[in-house]
Design a protein around this nucleic acid. Structure first.
Lengths: 160, 160
DNA sequence: ATAATAGCCTAGTAATTCTGTCAAGTATTA
DNA sequence: TAATACTTGACAGAATTACTAGGCTATTAT
């Protein structure tokens, strides 16, 4: 129960990849596709939505790709998921578009509402930076291969 | 995102109805159907699953219906939902049946896992009795019509 | 006994959502 | 101006959801 669609999952993973290159120039869809094992065509759809919401920006032409519009610690998982899948709406009753008309249903209404708020609170508190840090812990454990430091173009170059 | 199917929602509402009659004899599917506005045929499916799990019991024949097998404060919402919709599994990765094979995906894996645990914790802590009490608060506010106390058959009569 | 009541069980199915693919663009830069 | 990369909309197969239909079995009041 309470499954997340692949779109949301892939979206977060794609954002993670973009975030992990933060400050080192754009990342192409192809790269994300290879690293996260999601088709380029599907990623296009997903990144397009995220771009329109303003959290990432695209750079066209050779050498182009995607960059974060903000620092990783200012982009929450909740924001990404809401953009791709709409707000948390355990029941249709709680969808902002509709209202709950069942008076007797108010008890469960409150239940779902408070669960929804708990979930949103969690997701909004978690940022891409948290994911990056979590990853670094794992990388250290795995004795990550030394990352080559060359060619670090400034992030701001790609944000316009 | 993170929708609950109608099956789960109806299941909780049906259980609420059964719980609200706790100690006053069985409630028929027809009654639940009318009060909660869900078709009898669909409720049959739902209650059948719940019955097989042991949290309710059925009484056949005239005067029959459904009764709770335990007190309302010993049946959690989580238990009901798990029975109807399986465990909380934000991603298929976390479904007990499958394992997560993506090493790089571990970061998000942890994210979904801890979200799932939070949700389950919440749902397991919430019982039918909590719903009943929540309802009473509302009823008092609304100056509920006095419930007729007649014909209170003992609950144990129907539990065998 | 037997008719009425109430739950039990198995299928099937229409509608919707999900999970992508495809193809034909447009924009940018080396 | 060729190469690279993003943009957009349509569409299709698979899976899931949300039911309905219809016949069966068990129990009990009379």
């Amino acid at each position: 129960m309470l499954k997340l669609s692949t779109k949301g999952q892939y979206g977060v993973r794609a954002m993670f990849e973009i975030a992990s290159g933060y400050g080192r120039g754009p990342i192409t869809i192809r790269e994300i596709s290879e690293k996260q094992d999601v088709s380029v065509a599907y990623l296009e759809q997903i990144l397009n939505k995220l771009r329109k919401s303003g959290m990432i920006q695209s750079v066209k032409g050779p050498g182009g790709g995607y960059v974060l519009s903000r620092e990783p610690d200012r982009i929450s998982i909740g924001e990404i998921l809401r953009e791709l899948e709409g707000p948390v709406a355990i029941t249709s009753c709680l969808d902002p578009k509709e209202g709950c008309l069942r008076v007797e249903g108010c008890v469960t209404h409150l239940l779902w509402k408070s669960l929804g708020e708990k979930i949103e609170g969690f997701l909004d508190a978690m940022t891409l930076d948290d994911l990056l840090k979590g990853n670094q812990v794992i990388e250290i454990k795995k004795k990550e291969k030394n990352r080559q430091p060359g060619k670090n173009r400034a992030a701001l170059t790609f944000v316009r």
